[in-house]
Simulated assay, not measured.
Amino acid sequence: MGRGVGIASACASATVVNAIAAGKGAAFGIDLRVQATVRITKQRKISGRILGEKKESPKLIETCVRRVLESIGLEKSGAVVETTSEIPIAAGLSSSSAAANATVLATFAACDQRPTPEQVLELGIESAFEAGVTVTGALDDAAASFFGCGVITDNLKRRILKKFKVDPHLMVVIHVPPKKFYTSKVSPEKLHHLRGPIKSVHRMASRGEIWKALTINGLLYSTALGHDSMIAIEAISQGAVAAGLTGTGSATVAVAEPDKVVDIVKAWRNWPGRILITRPAVEGARVEGV
């Protein structure tokens, strides 16, 4: 790659505690990735494409590029940005946060700049608010995607309270229903009754009871949002250490020892949709080429 082109990627994440109800969240990175390629131009126009997803709006990635260029005094430049992704869109797996992280990093790389993690997260979150794809700013998702580990966060104060490691030998099994479910369509007011219970679940996660928190959080949000909680319960009955709705759905994530994966997959074939098998992330966002 020559000067003026940057390539970067970031990983997906799975929810431990969804921050919409109480403003505090937790998540961990999983090994599905999105890659962004940014090419700086002289045309003062920013155009984006999400390859393989013609119906999805490129507004978020275009906003990320513009905000980065403005932050380093290159607002008169233009750019072309393209993303490719292994992450199902609108399923609760942080496809937006990962795309923002990858795009922000790729734009800095294209401009020969090295940002701090705080800069990347802040620009991505502000872009997500502007593009209308987030309710809380999703610091939990963004930080898990950027650092590739587990994080416990205060989304409203934009603070990472704690990081934690997930056993890399565990497997992550994901059920993705046929229908997408967009976080931006969820009203925090409708989830206000979950505020107290979710605060308790967040404290549980902060004490290190990550898998218990993930399962209880998933049951609470599945019930509140009208998703089928039996998918998670079936995974638990098949030996998963934790299972629950991720994000606002529509996907369900199960965390399990490798020898339990086949049983979980067999049980989940009773539900329509596709099943992905992956692992906890071992690496977060990275520059892949300049």
Rank of each mutant, 00 (worst) to 15 (best):
R203V: 03
I61M: 13
Q113F: 13
V65T: 07
I125D: 02
I50G: 03
L161H: 05
G284D: 04
I210K: 02
T37N: 00
E118M: 06
G25S: 07
H175V: 00
A205I: 07
G25E: 04
Q113D: 09
S222G: 06
E189R: 12
N101I: 04
L60T: 07
I160W: 15
L105E: 11
A232W: 10
G196Q: 08
F28Q: 06
C111R: 11
R269I: 00
L32G: 02
A100Y: 09
A8D: 00
P178K: 03
M230N: 10
K199G: 01
R39M: 15
D31G: 01
L123D: 01
E56C: 05
V81I: 13
D112V: 07
P197F: 12
V5Q: 05
G148S: 10
E53K: 08
M230C: 02
T63A: 12
A243H: 01
D154C: 07
K199M: 14
A213S: 03
E82F: 07
P258L: 11
A138T: 03
R286D: 00
I40C: 02
H202E: 09
N155A: 09
G289D: 05
S13P: 00
I125P: 00
I264A: 04
V186Q: 06
D259S: 05
K54G: 07
K266C: 03
V151E: 02
A26E: 01
S229D: 14
I125A: 09
Q119F: 06
T134E: 09
V120S: 00
Y221T: 08
L245I: 04
A12S: 15
D263R: 13
G196K: 10
S229L: 09
S95D: 04
S237Y: 09
S57N: 02
A131C: 11
E234T: 08
S229R: 12
V290T: 06
A90S: 14
A106M: 13
A267E: 01
R274Q: 14
L194D: 03
G29Y: 14
H202I: 05
E118D: 06
C11Q: 01
A99W: 13
I7K: 13
T246W: 11
G273K: 06
H192D: 13
A143C: 08
L220H: 12
T107H: 05
V135I: 14
S127C: 06
F181G: 01
E75R: 03
R286E: 13
E130H: 01
S57F: 10
V287C: 12
